[in-house]
Design a protein around this nucleic acid. Structure first.
Length: 412
DNA sequence: TCTGGGGTCCTAGGACCC
DNA sequence: TCTGGGGTCCTAGGACCC
């Protein structure tokens, strides 16, 4: 079995360049929500030493002085482009796992295994022609090896790298332990303390020791690097176990009215996701964060609620969570961020119906129909045209900042 | 003035059960 | 003097991923 990890190069920057071809060849960075941190960099920007995750305000002057183009993140746009990339991948396999917005694992068809390199090259050409996004491809027999191969592929001109029985040894010996998928900062530090600095040294360790020190997941990583597949391809999109929507707001909020409006926007977004997944929610929590997170006094309030019966309509969810937000809100704080987390799901169609509540049941069904209808209208319109009046029409000062937005929705 | 947002899985420890 | 063995469920915290 042969797996390929297809990974879009500098994905968000590449998306921006689709709409602004004049940015090709220039240093470009894309910012996270609220123009907070750098989350994508062009190769030119990487060469200049700009770091992933760097706070924008720290490098603002440097970027301006050095002609780096700055873009506010536009996740809705990137998702549309991602969908087109994934659709293109589907031409090349019937067994694929969409791993993230810019990556997918593809199982190569049997007849492609002999000419894997050529097959991968044709995937690259096709995606470039049909979508215009550059990709790198790593080929191997396990996911962990394929991830590693794709990292190596990014550094060579062909954009394709295959790990085989012949070259695996040499590649692992040249790979720092922290560059392995599944080995994070803490684990890498620990392994280095034991004198294990490369992937090549890691695979030689006693599996029992690895399991004891790094748990079963570290063991899986070790096996995968050795070529034993332990992490299966997840071809079906799993239903989420929780849905979280939170935002750092564009300005500090202090009154309950402001905070509630901002939270309402999060709740409506979360509820829409819930219904899109065909789920109903059994428990929810809200949180409010105040103060400056990285200096001075700060903290957060949070509270959780279990529903007697699982619900999914905006109206019911809003009513329940307003009480919760009311319970955690305390005047006199400078609120900067808030969010909602939904959990304890069941599939909406399989919900248990209460025994003694015919009237409630009918009322609930009506509210749910309202929500489904509103979803359909908004889906059709391509954006949110129907929403709770209490959200307000103007004065949305909680909206995250997006100073450098490339395109407005209407122009896409 | 200013540092994102959204997930998953694993483990340990406590409560509780027989 | 001395106090078993086995299990489940829940939660918090840690670690990892994009």
């Amino acid at each position: 079995m042969l797996l390929a990890l297809c990974d879009c190069n500098n994905f968000f920057v590449s998306c921006e360049r689709l709409y602004r071809p004049e940015l090709r060849g220039r240093p470009v960075v894309v910012l996270s929500s609220n123009d907070g941190c750098i989350v994508s960099r062009s190769n030119e920007a990487k060469t200049m030493g700009i770091k992933m995750g760097q706070p924008y305000f720290q490098v603002e002057t440097y970027l301006r002085q050095n002609g780096v183009v700055v873009c506010s993140g536009n996740l809705a746009m990137y998702k549309e482009i991602s969908d087109k990339v994934m659709q293109t991948f589907e031409r090349f396999t019937d067994t694929m796992e969409v791993y993230s917005i810019d990556e997918a694992f593809l199982r190569f068809p049997k007849n492609a295994e002999k000419n894997a390199f050529e097959y991968a090259s044709s995937i690259r050409r096709t995606v470039d022609r049909l979508v215009g996004i550059p990709i790198s491809i790593g080929i191997a027999c396990t996911k962990t090896q394929a991830k590693l191969a794709s990292e190596k592929a990014k550094k060579i001109s062909t954009g394709v790298m295959e790990i085989t029985g012949e070259n695996v040894r040499e590649i692992l010996d040249k790979t720092a332990i922290e560059d392995i998928w599944g080995i994070g900062r803490k684990t890498a530090e620990k392994l280095r303390r034991y004198g294990i600095a490369t992937a090549g040294a890691f695979v030689l360790q006693d599996p029992l020791w690895v399991k004891k020190e790094l748990t079963v997941r570290g063991l899986a990583t070790q096996y995968e690097l050795q070529g034993r597949s332990c992490i299966p391809l997840e071809t079906k999109v799993p239903l989420p176990k929780s849905i979280q929507v939170s935002r750092t707001w564009g300005s500090v909020l202090e009154t309950f009215e402001d905070v509630w409006r901002a939270m309402l926007d999060n709740i409506v977004k979360a509820a829409r996701q819930l219904r899109d997944c065909g789920l109903a929610v059994g428990a929810a929590s809200v949180f409010l964060r105040y103060g400056k997170r990285h200096s001075g006094e700060c903290g957060y309030f949070t509270e959780k609620l279990m529903f007697k019966e699982q619900i999914l309509s905006d109206i019911e969810l809003i009513a329940a969570l307003k009480k919760l937000v009311d319970a955690i809100y305390r005047p006199g704080h400078r609120y900067t961020q808030g969010g909602v987390v939904l959990g304890a799901f069941t599939q909406a169609v399989y919900r248990q119906r209460g025994l003694f509540d015919q009237e409630d049941y009918e009322r609930r069904a009506k509210l749910e129909n309202v929500s489904y209808t509103v979803d359909a209208i908004n889906e059709n319109a391509g954006e949110r045209v129907v929403y709770p009046a209490s959200l307000g029409v103007k004065n949305k000062k909680w909206r995250p900042n997006r100073q450098f937005l490339t395109a407005k929705w209407s122009e896409l």
